[in-house]
């Protein structure tokens, strides 16, 4: 087994996913098979190979810190699931 049910529960918590019991069990089996396939990569010798995170050579892009957009409070808040005047309303964050 590459991944246990306990690990699936732990990863689901890290990923903030409230998975039902049957979903956890199904995912444990599927992820186990997928991860087993991923082990194929160990056939390749990658000693001394640099990891690649970006396919095209790019450097940091800097720009002046200038305000270019106008406030669009209504446009942004129209998608909010809950609002209070001009604020997003969220569950209590600090006890």
């Amino acid at each position: 087994m590459k991944i246990t049910s306990e690990e699936v529960r732990h990863v689901a918590t890290l990923a903030r996913l409230d998975l039902a019991q049957d979903e956890q069990e199904r995912l444990a089996g599927e992820l186990d098979r997928i991860l087993e396939y991923m082990d194929k990569l160990n056939e390749l010798d990658t000693d001394g190979v640099e990891p690649l995170s970006h396919a095209v050579d790019v450097v940091n892009v800097l720009r002046p810190d200038r305000v270019v957009n106008q406030p669009r409070t209504e446009d942004l808040l129209r998608n909010a699931p809950a609002r209070d005047d001009d604020f997003l309303s969220v569950p209590k964050i600090i006890e």
Binding site: L14, A15, R16, L17, D18, L19, L31, L35
Partner: peptide, 23 residues
Amino acid sequence: TYMKSRAQGFGQEVKRRIMLGTY
């Protein structure tokens, strides 16, 4: 609220990849 909103909002394949990626 995070966990339930995400569990209800994402479909199976998306959850699978989020789980795989988090792992």
